[in-house]
């Protein structure tokens, strides 16, 4: 699926579409592709808002994994994992920080710079979200 947005105002709507698409396919792990500054973290901020988290969503480049809390429709506390694997150098490192446990725990997992861990999951388990720039404010979002 392809979606084009022309301004930041369309982000909440885009976030709802992405989550609905993921839920239809029964996927909770999302990989984000796009260059530095394309808007990966910004989109993830909106996804967390739509899920109902009030936590501050910030870039996990240094911390590697951020967790945010939200309540599901039954009022139970759930967590969202936000990862940024840019500074990892090998798959072994990813496993060493316990990344596999996070992916398998059934949480929503939003992963930036996921290239290194692609071998861990099959296409049926992951929704790939790529953000491409078309001009300064237009973004093409491709869901695979």
């Amino acid at each position: 699926m392809e979606i084009r947005i022309g301004s930041r105002d369309e982000l909440p709507q885009l976030a709802r579409q992405v989550l609905a698409f993921a839920e239809r396919q029964n996927k909770k792990v999302l990989f984000f592709y796009g260059e530095l500054g394309a808007g990966k973290t910004t989109l993830i901020q909106h996804l967390c808002r739509v899920l109902g988290s009030q936590d501050l969503v910030s870039s996990p480049t240094f911390s590697l994994i951020n967790e945010y809390a939200y309540r599901d429709e039954k009022g139970r506390e759930q967590i969202i994992c936000h990862m940024d694997l840019y500074r990892l150098k090998s798959l072994a490192e990813a496993l060493d920080i316990g990344l596999e446990e996070y992916l398998a725990a059934g949480h929503w997992c939003f992963v930036e710079w996921p290239q290194l861990i692609e071998p861990l999951l099959s296409d049926e388990e992951v929704l790939k979200v790529s953000i491409e720039e078309e001009g300064t404010s237009v973004r093409k979002i491709v869901l695979l």
Partner: peptide, 8 residues
């Protein structure tokens, strides 16, 4: 650089 695996 700081390598998490090394760090951990």
């Amino acid at each position: 650089g700081v390598v998490p695996e090394v760090a951990s």
